[in-house]
């Protein structure tokens, strides 16, 4: 069989760059279809009630209360599925987008449940008696207990840092309260026994089962699968700026291919607690998936223990995840990084260098001082291999520093960003104030929002 003629070297480099930096991004229509399917699933039980010769209505207010109660139950069940990193959610959306959607839909869920409770009382003021903890029927007590569990879940999420709740403990509490709230809501619906006696009840039960299965997959089945594909810590390399790089090697497998800009949940293979896992951006080149590395700055919790890891420690990686995918036809890249927010950018630059990418890269990189610029020397070397210009911004510049000083803000970005950014892909990663300043500046410069990918680094 005749072989196709080899592609010219530049085309091959181009193809490699696209593979390492990003595949064709999913079109917005895919996400539109996903939202439509999600919306249909949420209201499916309502449709089943109507299709099943329901009992006569009791006035629009109480019927609206019932409808919101059923919708709330569906939303609650699906809330367990969204962050579970399962294919039907994580593939079209990206695990990071799915978690953000989970957070935003929590607001919708609270509004729906609050409206349900208020309308139950407005529709029939005698229902106020349902809040009597001694005299109320068990179905009402189940509903109140479910609301209390949800309130505790939200409070523990909002106040986690303030009450110094460790990330792993918070995750355990979060899942436990979520499952508890769902079970109590289902009990409430069964006790009310009005609309969920037939097909609609089966649908709600199925949604609840899917939610519980998603938790089982995330907490039990997935960790077991990952245990069969461990990585070894090969080196622990101290970096400038108080960071360390964990250089890993796939043990007995080839590693999972990833795209620069993605992240993985990292977990010690021998850690007894299954909930202690932490998300970090890949900092290595996507060209070597069998040797991924993660650069971690000690902020507390697991990040403080990272420098103490010994070579030979076995770790598990749940990844790659993350929706970022460089546009294949981007003409140039603008990377804006603050502190340890450099990690996805260094992965992009290393991948570009490995792929022989010829496109121009501009890195605007904020650090505390010159001595603490993580990857300082490597950035110098990379700028000799690829078309890279680095603008260092130092909060505490040394005497005689002629570069940029202070913080990354709109005026600074306007000085350095090229005037025409229409073909550029922009990746921003840093602390909340830096992110806000950079995004405001990009808006002023007229960069299309869909070409800007922003990530706020989190300290967990």
């Amino acid at each position: 069989m005749a072989r196709a003629p080899a592609a010219p070297a530049s085309d091959r480099a181009d193809a490699l760059a696209r593979r390492l930096l990003g595949a064709a991004p999913l079109r917005a229509s895919v996400k539109g279809v996903w939202v439509a399917v999600y919306g249909l699933v949420v209201v499916l039980p309502l449709g089943a009630v109507l299709a099943d010769a329901p009992p006569p209505g009791r006035g629009i207010v109480l019927e609206l209360a019932s409808a919101l109660g059923i919708v709330g139950l569906s939303l609650l069940a699906l809330q367990l599925v969204l962050p579970a990193r399962v294919g039907p959610v994580a593939r079209p959306l990206g695990a990071d987008v799915a978690v953000r959607l989970h957070r935003h839909l929590a607001d919708v869920l609270v509004a729906v449940i609050a409206a349900h409770v208020v309308l139950v009382v407005i529709g029939d003021p005698s229902n106020l008696g349902l809040f009597d903890p001694l005299g109320a029927p068990w179905r009402a007590r189940a509903a109140v207990a479910s609301c209390v569990a949800l309130a505790a879940l939200i409070a523990s999420s909002v106040l986690r840092r303030r009450i110094r709740l460790a990330y792993a403990r918070w995750r355990g509490l979060h899942v436990g309260l979520g499952v508890g709230a769902l079970a109590l809501s289902v009990a409430h619906a069964v006790g009310v026994d009005r609309y969920l006696a037939s097909a609609a009840g089966l649908l709600v039960a199925a949604l609840a089962a899917v939610g519980l299965l998603a938790v089982l997959e995330l907490r039990v089945l997935r960790p077991r699968r990952l245990a069969g594909r461990p990585y070894l810590v090969e080196r622990v390399v101290p970096e400038r700026g108080g960071a360390v790089t964990l250089a890993l090697r796939a043990e007995g497998h080839r590693g999972r291919p990833f795209r620069a800009g993605q992240f993985a949940w990292l977990k010690l293979a021998d850690a007894p607690r299954a909930l202690a896992e932490h998300p970090f951006s890949y900092s290595s080149s996507a060209g070597r998936p069998e040797r991924p590395s993660f650069t971690i700055k000690a902020y507390g919790g697991f990040t403080r223990r990272a420098p103490e890891l010994r070579p030979g420690t076995r770790v598990l990686l749940d990844g790659p995840h993350g929706s970022y995918s460089a546009r294949p036809h981007a003409e140039r890249f603008v990377l804006i990084a603050g502190g340890i927010g450099i990690t996805p950018s260094i992965s992009l630059l290393r991948s570009a260098a490995d792929a022989g990418d010829c496109r121009p890269f501009l890195l605007v990189y904020g650090s505390l001082c010159w001595e603490q610029v993580t990857f300082r020397e490597e950035l110098e070397r990379l700028s000799e291999r690829i078309d890279l210009r680095v603008v260092h911004v130092l909060t505490e510049p040394p005497p005689g520093w002629e570069g940029e000083a202070g913080f990354i803000d709109a005026a600074l970005l306007e000085r350095h960003l090229p005037p025409n950014l229409s073909g550029a892909d922009v990746f921003v990663c840093g602390s909340p104030p830096m992110l806000a300043a950079a995004l405001a500046a990009l808006e002023r410069l007229g960069v299309a929002p869909e070409h800007v990918h922003a990530e706020q680094f989190v300290t967990v």
């Binding site: 939202v35 935003h104 509004a111």
Partner: peptide
């Protein structure tokens, strides 16, 4: 200002849930 697609997704789902609940209530109370 960056393109946080979860905003339109959330708004669409929220609106859809509200409309579906209102439609259910209207149909059931007539």
């Amino acid at each position: 200002m960056h393109h946080d697609e979860t905003r339109w997704m959330t708004a669409a789902i929220e609106l859809w849930c509200l409309l579906a609940a209102l439609a259910f209530a209207a149909l059931q109370s007539t």
